[in-house]
Design a protein around this nucleic acid. Structure first.
Ligand SMILES: NC(=O)c1ccc[n+]([C@@H]2O[C@H](COP(=O)([O-])OP(=O)(O)OC[C@H]3O[C@@H](n4cnc5c(N)ncnc54)[C@H](O)[C@@H]3O)[C@@H](O)[C@H]2O)c1
Ligand SMILES: NC(=O)c1ccc[n+]([C@@H]2O[C@H](COP(=O)([O-])OP(=O)(O)OC[C@H]3O[C@@H](n4cnc5c(N)ncnc54)[C@H](O)[C@@H]3O)[C@@H](O)[C@H]2O)c1
Lengths: 253, 253
DNA sequence: ATGCCTTTGTGAACGCGTGCACAAAGATAG
DNA sequence: CTATCTTTGTGCACGCGTTCACAAAGGCAT
């Protein structure tokens, strides 16, 4: 199982493009804010601005859900909130289990924004025997030995992994074996899962590296011109020491 | 500034596609692991598997950086580590400031994975006067009043926002005014920034909602057929109470 | 009732990203 | 030195996502 198969042109998401799905939560958040201010209707232009996207994109996105707008007026806020919530599956309760209750796991457990949208922290699981029974965010931490039972008993289908990278794959396997079919992975590891299981990853380090890339480009633009040749040690934003001890002696070709 | 302008076909990233940039950290991680095991060379096939991508994609990605491989052999691990590090700007030191030292901010501050790749937590900033001076992860928390000076003194160009959503835009504005040009935002807010400033967001809630969408689809597939019409309350994975108090009375059209 | 004015919904064009498939490159063996 | 074999680098085609631009729809004023 989960050998090398990366093929996945299988079940397309019933017409709704993945990119659209990823934006629906954004729209929902903006709509919820409008709803709380008792705004009755909103135009695609206004809502798009609030969500930080293009209005044409927003309209096309909504067109996949159906024709919920009124021409000349806009969209009914409450109705749209309901439609998107339903489409995303937020009208039901999603029990979530967090595995690895360290710095990050505890922060997530304490995070109030979870429950706000139908997600409920149903269980906290850790391998450290000393933590078993300790309450974190009002929930007693349970031991990994009981993982299987905990998942089953609570009907958990979404698991969050916040263990060290070395343990992530093993924890993932156990979660999947116990019935979890969606995983949010915070460990910097590539997880292998059988077909039918969704994995999304949140990787702080990658985000920072992408920012660093663009940051470097911006710095290099100022003192443009000379590209290759000179060691990149001029427009360093920090002005600390340059590259050191990283330069390999090996040079192929 | 930063009014409605979302146009940005301006400076393309010197040939390297954004999608490729986003994968470079992934390759780098896999390569570092190989390097630690003293593996001298690696083929595109092996490395692609380790990084969880397609081998053709990997080769094409590398082709944007130059021809660093040797046909018939593969890539020199050490050399490739250096080339990617250099391309990502990781051969220099990036001082990072974290603003909002609560649950999440503290977890990030304590996270060791930061420094591993040239990122250094240079400052922790919070608005709570009671926190000023308190050491978190060995670094004294400083007050927001001094934000401008802290950013300047440390040459910080990358800021991390972990404040409550309401404060995020204001904090962002202050960071930008102080000279920050890259922001990693954990608050569930759409940030407006002037041109030239990069923003990346990490949004746990959105990730969970995307997972919920697919989860719902999977559950609906089992008991397929009847689409619209009946209330969606059958194949609930949790079996808890159904939608409640969310159903709006308004129905346009 | 009629015409105007706003805004949606979408057809169509375009550009980016992905993956296939293969020729060229180079290492290695004989 | 030549042949063979492995693996890169990339041309090409395809599909997805984005954006433009506009006709159709519907509210609203008169
Ligand atoms: N802390 C951060 O800000 C941060 C940021 C980005 C990524 N991460 C990643 O998140 C993960 C957790 O980070 P952290 O700082 O919370 O680490 P941590 O060491 O504080 O916590 C890890 C927890 O996982 C538990 N654990 C270890 N093996 C386990 C297993 N097999 N089953 C169940 N639990 C197990 C440990 O007992 C510990 O409580 C790491 O992979 C880290 O790379 C953390
Ligand atoms: N904790 C999580 O797991 C988690 C997950 C996803 C998103 N988030 C988001 O991350 C942010 C922080 O979450 P948290 O759980 O750490 O919240 P928290 O309340 O624990 O911490 C927020 C911190 O920000 C400080 N702060 C408030 N206003 C400030 C300002 N103007 N300038 C500087 N500092 C200020 C507060 O003093 C507090 O220390 C929130 O926006 C939250 O929605 C958190």
């Amino acid at each position: 199982m989960a050998t090398g198969r990366t093929h996945r042109p299988a079940t397309r998401s019933r017409g709704i493009p993945e990119a659209t799905v990823a934006r629906l939560p954004l729209y929902l958040r903006a709509l919820t804010a409008l709803s709380e201010r008792s705004v009755p209707t909103v135009s695609s232009e206004e809502l798009a601005t609030a969500a930080g996207v293009n209005s044409a994109k927003l309209r096309k996105d909504f067109s996949y859900l159906g024709s919920y707008g009124t021409r000349g007026v806009g969209y009914d806020v409450e109705y749209l909130v309901y439609q998107i919530s339903r489409e995303l599956g937020l009208t039901q309760d999603w029990p979530v289990a967090i595995v690895g209750i360290g710095n990050l796991g505890a922060a997530l457990a304490n995070y109030g924004g979870f429950a706000s949208r139908g997600f409920r922290v149903a269980a906290l699981i850790d391998a450290d025997p000393a933590m078993a029974g300790t309450p974190v965010a009002g929930i007693a931490v349970q031991h990994t030995d009981d993982l299987d039972r905990i998942i089953s008993d609570n009907g958990v289908s979404i698991g969050v992994i916040t263990t060290p990278p070395g343990a992530a794959q093993q924890v993932c396997d156990r979660l999947v074996a116990a019935g979890v079919t969606s995983i949010l992975n915070f460990a910097p590891t590539v997880l292998s899962v059988p077909e039918g299981v969704d994995v999304r990853k949140v990787d702080l380090s990658i985000e920072l590296q992408i920012l660093a890339f663009h940051e470097q480009r911006k710095a290099g633009e100022d003192a443009a011109a000379e590209d290759e040749g000179a060691p990149p040690m001029r427009a360093t934003p920090a002005g600390r020491k340059g590259p050191d001890g990283d330069m390999p002696a090996v040079m192929p070709a």
